[in-house]
């Protein structure tokens, strides 16, 4: 955006920080309240499963552990992509961006599999307050991951057009911030929703 133009001549940004990065961080601060609301809703409703399956009956911890691990590792590849670009290593930047996007897609695939399994086992979206809250929370997270994948793919396209250069590594950094945030939210969800013992029927 035109912030460089909008900053008056002869003096820097007030904080010396990049406008774009600051914007992303304000957004992430705001997202905390969004996910906080969804997570609290889930926590309030997790024992209200009515006649449907209970969370403790249905969660497949080993499976989710694997997909959580995949997402965690995508944070590593993301940061490696940034680090490569900061060195001016376009090739490795592309490789790691692609790997990150693929790991993200793998996570989403895992989520789709999990959802369909739950559906087969009788946990539909409308089954109980628990099921609605669970699908909404994890669904919102999934949408965030998917948007992240779209951003990563856009970065890749931009890279192949030759516009994603060392000078513009901040773009990758900002997308990375978003990506890591989504990962961090999953770290929270994985522990609090899956690992903390859930009610059983």
């Amino acid at each position: 955006m035109a912030e460089a133009a909008a900053v008056s001549h002869g003096h820097g940004t007030g904080t010396g920080l990049s406008n774009n990065k600051l914007l992303m961080w304000t957004f992430l601060g705001s997202e905390c309240l969004l996910f906080g609301g969804l997570i609290s809703t889930y926590l309030i409703y997790r024992s209200r499963f009515g006649d449907g399956p209970a969370p403790g009956d249905i969660f497949d911890i080993p499976f989710t552990s694997v997909s959580s691990f995949v997402l965690l590792m995508s944070s590593l590849t993301m940061v490696l992509a940034l680090s490569a670009l900061q060195r001016g290593d376009i090739r490795n930047n592309r490789i790691w961006l692609l790997t990150t996007a693929l790991l993200g897609a793998l996570f989403i695939g895992g989520q789709v599999y999990e959802f369909t399994t739950f559906l087969r086992e009788g946990l539909g979206y409308t089954t109980s307050p628990f099921s609605s809250a669970f699908f909404t929370l994890t669904g919102f997270h999934g949408v965030h991951v998917s948007l992240g994948i779209v951003m990563l793919m856009s970065l890749l396209i931009s890279s192949f057009r030759g516009t994603l250069t060392k000078e513009r590594s901040e773009t990758v950094e900002i997308v990375g911030l978003y990506w890591h945030f989504v990962d961090v939210v999953w770290i929270f969800i994985f522990t609090v929703i899956y690992l903390v013992p859930s009610p059983t029927s």
Binding site: N19, E31, T171
Partner: peptide, 20 residues
């Protein structure tokens, strides 16, 4: 420089904006 930053913003923050 403005342009560089421009493209960069659109790519990231704007997509992110779609999240909510």
């Amino acid at each position: 420089h403005g342009e560089d930053d421009a493209v960069l913003l659109g790519g990231s923050a704007e997509n992110a904006e779609e999240a909510p």
